[in-house]
Design a protein around this nucleic acid. Structure first.
Lengths: 161, 161
DNA sequence: GGCTTGCTTGGAGTGCACTCCAAGGTCCTA
DNA sequence: TAGGACCTTGGAGTGCACTCCAAGCAAGCC
């Protein structure tokens, strides 16, 4: 939590993504270094390189000396991957989806199915959470009541004294 | 998903928990073996022993030969722990809660705070999931439309032929 | 009594998603 | 042209939540 707050502050400081339009550079001049993408996505450089290695990123363009230069398209993809991650989808399934994207338009049906399954999982997870909320509220109320009662007892005792 | 379905089937077959009242035995005769608890909770025996080792279970009663005998109270606790697990709470925090319970009634305030923080986390997580749902639906619609268009094209082409 | 199935323990192993390291090359500013 | 910040790689390490193993008792049935 502390770290993600730090990241948010960092984003605001850099004037990227959080307070500005996501892609401040026009297509063609959109060649972001890895540290710019770190500041903008909140992912670490390690994680960005790891995503590329396991096939979760399409191969990122390189400078003449071999350093990564991310494009607006790459940022869009990372943003979508971030959403998939929030659904709780395993990384292996995200890689599968990335493979389907690479294979072209004839995989539309498979991709749709994968997303629909994910959608069902999200709905189920939300129902689970709703369920836990009822239990949590029940217990919270119990503790709140119990404390009120014990405070009242203490007050009465001090009045009697 | 396949495994959890199998567990559900097992529960129904055993006539425990899923289709019957949670505690089929009256207090005093409630001395369940570990395998009965496995069938009823869906946890593995390994996990039950591990929970006890790390202090997430109060010490469970034993038979004269040292085998575990779980009580209705233990099942209630496991059921609540299951809810906490569904919230996504880390095991270390659940252990902290269990310690507070062991310390007695003067920890009511701390327990309430812990559950309220958990409640806030659950609400935040649900908002995240709701957010991903919008993206998922957008993409699913995109694929559905794209496929409809390509089917229509194919039909027109075959009519022309 | 023999057989199968179940339970015990400490400690080691697994899978996931990162996370870090060492050693070296690159970029930018003064 | 010197210094410091930034980038590269493969491979090893981390933290979490289990998950499994070996070796040995224990319980129930024929």
């Amino acid at each position: 939590m502390i770290e993600s707050t730090a990241v948010t502050v960092e984003r605001v400081r850099q004037g990227l993504c959080a307070t500005q339009p996501l892609h401040p550079r026009p297509d063609g001049q959109d060649r972001y270094t890895i540290s710019e993408v770190v500041a903008c996505t909140g992912l670490t450089a390690h994680t960005l390189r790891w995503y590329e290695r396991i096939g979760l990123m399409p191969h990122v363009d390189r400078s003449h000396t071999g350093q990564r230069r991310f494009s607006n398209k790459d940022l869009d993809w990372l943003s979508f991957v971030g959403k998939l991650r929030l659904t709780g989808m395993p990384v292996a399934d995200m890689v599968r989806y990335a493979e389907l994207v690479r294979e072209g338009a004839h995989t539309f049906e498979a991709r749709q199915e994968l997303l629909e399954q994910t959608r069902r999982d999200v709905i189920a997870r939300m129902a689970e959470l709703q369920d836990t909320l009822a239990v949590l509220d029940y217990k919270i109320d119990f503790y709140a009541d119990a404390r009120k009662v014990s405070e009242a007892d203490a007050r009465k005792a001090s009045e009697r004294a």
